[in-house]
Nucleic acid binder design. Structure first.
Length: 766
DNA sequence: CGGTCACCAGTTTTT
DNA sequence: CTGGTGACCG
């Protein structure tokens, strides 16, 4: 009896087919990770392949970690030398070694979307673009699409023909690239593009990696884009032992450049490819699966396959419509409470939705009802202002060439260096063709900087000091020193009392992550470096922090939920105009609607035992009330699978749950006549949820405890005179016992009345 | 230079 | 409703 006997027939076939191209069409829940891990084990144990020669590419760091763990469990040794990583981290690793061949410094920094936007602003200013006409976001998205198709500025310009707008964009593209390079920075797309360029132009590098990666596996292949396809083709070009796994029905990243043709045309690209379909689902009940099949069968042009399961029929799918989104949230929260009372755990449930903004109401209800939860997504931890500030210090210390980072922190905390001075430095830098930081080192060369020279000097001295320290001390020590010497922590506490606590907690969290990184390096016998940390930090996704063994309800978008599974899934906001989104309904591209349908399919198939669909008749969106019908996708589910709960009258009067099994959307019932209120403006994205500083509940997240301890007793009391670093002397008016800390109200002699947390205010009795 | 106030524009999904 | 931006004043 070997470990391979536990596989079903097609699974085993996929594991045993080791040489040559292989396409595994793996339906949802059909055990594809199992196949991949067993295949790796088989390669190592039975085929004698050196783990060193295996590359497995996954979609997220979390998936990579899990895969490595599972291979570890199977093989027991050698698994640490398998390369398991995401496309992006793999590229960074290659580029750190070889990007100097393309004329970059190997210590390049990585720009996130926020940085890109800042850079684009500067570009538009320089190229004299009216940002009313060409929005930064639109420009960036055009450039990103171009990069995803490997179209460089020159070609883009040629393609423009005589089109005035396109030529203008070409100019922006060119300048954007120039500035990235000047800052020694790469954006996310560049990581892939540059790696492909490297492999294309440097035969020895290509040869090196082709030899190394003799066996390549790519997970979630349906979501690869054109550059990723090129990259994989290049790497697999010599040995052609390429195994791709995916499900065309779960392709949901078109907006990010994913090209569904990569999987649909795999057999054309590799005519000798073996194709294996995994159609038995081990995850869900029959009812859930049939609902999913019902929905997805409305899509055209998909690979023919039908999922089946030997699991029982299971419960019916619960569908409830409410009057308001508020009622919807309340129901979900109460339902989860009820299940927990009946013996379920919180982490048996997940709430999925189309847009991040929907998390807010749910979060409020969960807090009110004391349900532990974790929100995945929204604003990335590393995109928070305070985190970006601190990271900008690290970047500046690490790589003075990143103008964006330097400009970000030159006056944070306030040092009296204003915009005028910053612009003068920039002009001087541009004029001399040097970096912003280098220009600032010599204020005497900057015309008109006279009065600011002293301030600039002390800023430069501070950074230079940190640079020296970076050589000598550990990352965490450096971080602490930066926080301390810049006065960042103190200023934060002083600036806005409301947000201070959560921001300081985030900084604590960052310190924890730095410490974890150092430990990690120690375990792996590598040197913990500043750039190493910055790089790790640049490529994490929020989903990576999800921990299955923690007992909380997970809230996230359908996109984030891909690859996960839960006993009970709530799919919230199944309304026309929200899901499918307003944009796809009004747009005339039927492919977009198909992608939304695939998203729906992904959502349904996350559920193992129970699926609850909820929607609201009206909902507030951007301050306006929207009136929505039940999602068209619901009518694609065979009606006999649905339990509308109509008999079990939940609530007397209004907010009941009515749903007529018929086609359901002849008329919008009610106000407004149309299905939507609100005017559809050009689609775009950005920060979707999360009011200022509103921090998702992270108290349950491992390692988020504050290191600063709440003291039992304060050294001062009401009426005492105290001194604050920034505000000077004052009198304590009030001390309130808070959850984690004392909230102290002080009337300062010069700065007025302020509330602050004792832990951070460091008040001294005088 | 920095703070405050008023106005305006915006939101699908993310490595 | 909210965050970002621009004008104005201390």
């Amino acid at each position: 009896m070997s470990i391979y006997d536990t596989l079903n027939e097609p699974q085993r076939e996929a594991v045993l087919h080791t040489d040559g191209p292989l396409l595994i069409l793996a339906g949802a829940g059909s055990g594809k990770t199992r196949v991949l891990t067993h295949r790796i084990a088989y390669l190592i144990e039975e085929m004698g392949v050196n783990p060193w020669n295996i590359l497995a590419i996954t979609f997220t760091n979390k998936a990579a970690g899990e895969m490595r763990q599972r291979v570890d469990d199977l093989v027991g040794f050698g698994s640490e030398s398998i390369w398991v990583s995401t496309f992006h981290s793999m590229c960074v690793r290659i580029l750190r070694r070889f990007i100097d061949r393309l004329g970059y410094d190997n210590r390049f920094t990585i720009y996130d979307t926020d940085d890109q936007k800042t850079l684009m602003k500067a570009v538009c200013k320089k190229v004299d673009i009216d940002t009313k006409q060409f929005k930064e976001r639109m420009l960036l998205s055009v450039i990103s699409s171009a990069k995803n198709e490997m179209i460089l500025p020159e070609e883009f310009e040629m393609n423009a023909g005589g089109d005035f707008a396109q030529l203008k964009i070409a100019k922006v593209y060119r300048e954007y690239e120039a500035q990235l390079k000047a800052n020694n920075a790469l954006d996310f797309d560049d990581l892939l593009v540059k790696t492909v360029q490297l492999l294309q132009t440097q035969p020895d590098v290509r040869e090196n990696y082709q030899e190394r990666f003799r066996y390549i596996m790519v997970d979630e292949y349906q979501d690869t884009n054109t550059v990723q396809f090129k990259l994989v083709s290049l790497l697999a070009g010599k040995y052609r032992n390429l195994c791709v796994v995916g499900d065309d029905d779960q392709s949901i990243y078109k907006f990010r450049g994913a090209n569904i043709r990569n999987i649909l045309d795999f057999e054309k690209e590799y005519p000798d490819a073996k194709v294996i379909k995994l159609e038995q689902n081990y995850r869900s009940t029959e009812n859930i699966l049939n609902a999913a099949n019902g929905v997805i069968s409305n899509n055209k042009g998909r690979k023919d396959k039908t999922l089946w399961t030997a699991n029982g029929e299971g419960q019916k799918i619960c569908l409830k419509q409410f009057d308001t989104a508020y009622d919807e949230a309340e129901f979900i929260a109460e339902d989860i409470k009820k299940e927990v009372r009946d013996g379920a755990s919180y982490n048996d449930s997940a709430v999925l939705y189309r847009t991040n903004a929907q998390s807010r109401l749910l979060e409020e209800k969960f807090i009110a009802m004391n349900i532990p939860y974790k929100i995945v997504g929204g604003i990335n931890f590393y995109a928070r202002r305070e985190i970006k500030d601190i990271l900008a210090y690290l970047k500046t210390v690490d790589n003075g060439q990143d103008d964006l980072a330097v400009r970000r922190i030159i006056n944070v905390p306030k040092r009296g260096i204003g915009l005028t001075t910053i612009n003068r430095i920039q002009e001087a830098a541009d004029a001399r063709g040097i970096s912003f930081y280098d220009a600032l080192l010599a204020p005497e060369m900057i015309p008109g900087a006279g009065r600011s020279a002293a301030k600039l000097n002390s800023f430069a001295a501070l950074i230079e000091y940190f640079k020296g320290q970076a050589e000598k001390e550990s990352l965490t020590d450096l971080l602490n020193e930066i926080l301390d010497m810049t006065g960042y922590t103190q200023n934060l506490e002083a600036d806005d009392e409301i947000d201070a606590e959560s921001r300081l907690q985030n900084i604590e969290e960052l310190l924890n992550k730095a410490a974890a990184y150092e430990e990690d390096c120690e375990d792996r016998d590598e040197k913990a470096t500043l750039s190493g940390f910055l790089e790790e930090v640049a490529l994490v996704a929020d989903i990576d922090s999800l921990e299955e063994d923690q007992d909380y309800v997970v809230l996230m978008t359908l996109h984030s939920a891909k690859g996960l599974e839960f006993p009970h899934v709530y799919l919230a906001g199944v309304e026309d105009g929200l899901f499918p989104s307003y944009m796809t309904i009004t747009g005339d591209d039927p492919e977009e609607l198909e992608e939304e349908r695939r998203l729906c399919y992904v959502g349904i198939t996350r559920a193992e035992q129970k699926l609850t669909l909820t929607c609201a008749r009206k909902r507030m969106v951007r301050g306006e009330t929207q009136y929505n019908r039940i999602s068209r996708f619901i009518s694609e589910i065979p009606p006999e699978l649905l339990d509308t709960g109509r008999s079990s009258a939940e609530r007397a009067g209004g907010a009941g749950n009515t749903y007529s099994g018929d086609s359901g959307f002849g008329n919008a019932d009610g106000i407004g006549g149309g299905a939507f209120a609100g005017t559809g403006r050009g689609g775009s994205f950005g920060k979707a949820y999360g009011a200022a500083g509103k921090k998702p509940f992270t108290a349950l997240t491992k390692g988020s405890q504050l290191t600063a301890q709440k003291s039992d007793k304060l050294s001062y009391g009401v009426g005492d005179r105290v001194r604050h670093v920034k505000f000077g002397e004052g009198t304590v008016l009030d001390i309130k016992e808070g959850g984690r800390d004392f909230e102290v109200t002080v009337e300062f002699d010069t700065a007025g009345v302020r509330k602050m947390f004792a832990m951070f205010a460091k008040l001294v009795k005088i």
